[in-house]
Amino acid sequence: MIAASKRRKKQRMTEGAIQTILFLCAALSVITTIGIVGVLLFETWGFFQEVSIIDFLTDTQWTPLFVDKHFGIMSLLAGTCLIALIAMCVALPLGIMSAIYLNEYAPSRVRETIKPIIEVLAGIPTVVYGYFALLFVTPLLQSFIPNLSGFNALAPGIVMGIMILPMVSSLSEDAMHSVPDSLKEGAYALGATRFQVATSVVVPAALSGIMSAAVLAVSRAIGETMIVSIAAGQQPRLTMNPLVPLETITAFIVQVSLGDTPTGTIEYKTIFAAGMTLFIFTLVLNLFSQWLKERYREEY
């Protein structure tokens, strides 16, 4: 009896200890977030001790590495947005079309073959896309557009679009797949073609899911680093011209990281201020995407 109760006591203690360890594992994710926000806030605070926030938001030049320093994040934001825009122009139509094709038209055998191949695109390291943008797509585009510079926004934008295409395609497909069959069958019974069912029933019903995918794709595009670091050049420029070299927020962080920047210098702090800007943008987009997805879940 006594041995049994002792064993039970010991077991209860082990159970408690294990549960605590497992809880700590889960809590680490919260600590990670606190770490990210803490590090970014701390260095950004130091940054704004030296640079006025008004200059940061309104100056049109970004030259923290020059003697004549300007800290206008606008020119990095312009580059980031331009490339994300080009990427979305590629990824959205192609992604949604291929989702419609795979969901509504393709025989299941074709679907089963093509889907994993498209997924392969999502698993390729981004540095590989960078190589491809700089050494294959740019020379190819230059044969059509002679005044395209060796570093530009167009090639990395297009390649980034292909990179995020699998995400747009598979998330849109999930959304289309969860449209109840009865809705589609109702439309078919009224004599609609597959095209009409796809455009008038499936896409509208799955719209918030598709939009959620699109917003998430924008977030991925503005956070993407290697393609733009390799193929877009490193010249911050307030422009919407896709043919000239420019720089994104992420590429700037890489540019500074490659050099030897001592802690505490203003150059060191700028990458955290730039990182903070990037973090806020992606966080807002991610939350917006989740909100859209939740909304659509409630409908059925």
């Binding site: 994710s29 977030t33 590090v39 890489v254 990281s257």
Partner: peptide
């Protein structure tokens, strides 16, 4: 909170993790 937090961490750009590593582990 943990669940929402993990979903959001999955969407944080990888370069931001690099800045975290720089600020915490390196410095």
């Amino acid at each position: 909170i943990i669940e929402v937090n993990i979903a959001n961490l999955a969407g944080v750009p990888s370069i931001i993790y690099g800045l975290l590593g720089l600020g915490i582990f390196v410095r």
